[in-house]
Write a protein that binds this DNA or RNA. Sequence first.
RNA 1: GGAGAGGUCGCAUAGUGGCCUAGUGCGAUGGUUUUGAAAACCAUUAAGAGCGCAAGUUCUUCGGGAGUUCGAAUCUCCCCCUCUCCGCCA
Length: 408
Amino acid sequence: MLDLKFIRENPDLVVKKAKEKGIEVNIEHILVLDNKLRGLDTMVQSLREERNRAAKEKNIEKGKEVKVKLEKHENDLNAIKEELNKYLLQLPNPAKDDVKFGKNDTENEVLRRVGEPTKFNFAPKDHLSLGEKLDIIDVVRASKISGARFYFLKNEGALLEFALRQLAFDLLLKEGFIPLIPPVLIKTEVMKGLGYMENGGDEDMYILDKDDLVLVGTSEQSIVAIHKDEVLNAKDLPKRYVGFSTCFRREAGSYGKDTRGILRAHQFDKVEMVSYTKQGEDDKEHEYLLSLEEKLLQSLGIPYQVVKMCTGDLGYPAARKYDLEAWIPSENKYREVTSTSTTTDFQSRRLNIKYQDGNEKNYVNILNGTAFSTRPIIAILENYQQEDGSIIIPEVLQKYIGKEVIKR
RNA sequence: GGAGAGGUCGCAUAGUGGCCUAGUGCGAUGGUUUUGAAAACCAUUAAGAGCGCAAGUUCUUCGGGAGUUCGAAUCUCCCCCUCUCCGCCA
């Protein structure tokens, strides 16, 4: 959500920035509504003043008269407020100035590559063939009981996930992150407030009508909302959380896309980082979160590239976003495994999260980033595969799993 | 799931239709006093919004929403949350 005053003063900029993200905005309508609203608001206020005065004087006749007038104008006011709000919620967060303009993901910017694409003197297999042969991934039985896009992680497959999670927590706890296991069901009303259900977002969510709850698509959703309607102390910032949870996505609209293996599933696990910082300190924090993500991938010894999203690929709340893409030998290309975004004060306005610094009060900046998800397992299996189909376990993970090789 | 009790300013509590412009205590902040501190005393003690150059002024908010009323913290209805007991259960 953007500041209404800012919109009033910089309407052209708001339009231009939205356009860069590929979103058309009817700013005229917003300004007209805003203008109407303020006129009406003033009128309603003075009518209320009259009502209050009549009540104090116990002037019943006068009170009755004012009540009728007030009712009508209050209804109008509420209607306009609601409409204006609807439009305001549709405005995207403007991209930061350092973000390059681009229409879609083909125009994203590769910032750097770390490590060389893994070379094999045999034809590398994909993660699913490897996983099935080693009996660590089972999608056939999963589909029997849950349908397409579900999987069992089994044996060392399950242990690999635990190991990745522990590796991430070990690093982030050292960095002072607060560990968190969040709820994965959120009230529909709160999810709407978060803004994840707009623009078709609800199509990608599992909604439990009977209980008015929604399954989270990422624990970012519950972690970001943890301080809803709170004023934080500036002393405690930056405040950093690391949460672990299962994530649920309907993947509507991705039929036939990435159907093989565990790359795109309805359910997966993720270790998520969320930072709250003071206004204007998000750039520094963003680089910090990125550096942590790189450190984790580097410690696994997986070749990757850092990609900076162009304006057209940013999405609504992000002002800047980096993806880390790991080298996937079977596809002969890099694929997204983790990412990090700054939402500046876009989310904190919606959620009403502020901080107090002396006499000053301001909205916090909120950032998020993936430490690990299930996806890096794909990169590990494929990059560490041997000719006989066995997998060497990355050295940093060996202590968690208690062996060096996965073989049958 | 059943029965009951609650939710008021940072915290604790008072408030059962107009004297609430929400009282009191604690805490916090500033000041006076003091060599310094404590104590004492004095003052301040929320957020959001509108109008106004400003001083200021008005409105909204007593868990949330809807209603009754000239007038609601107070009455009615719905919802949320917390606590106690029972039942069930990792």
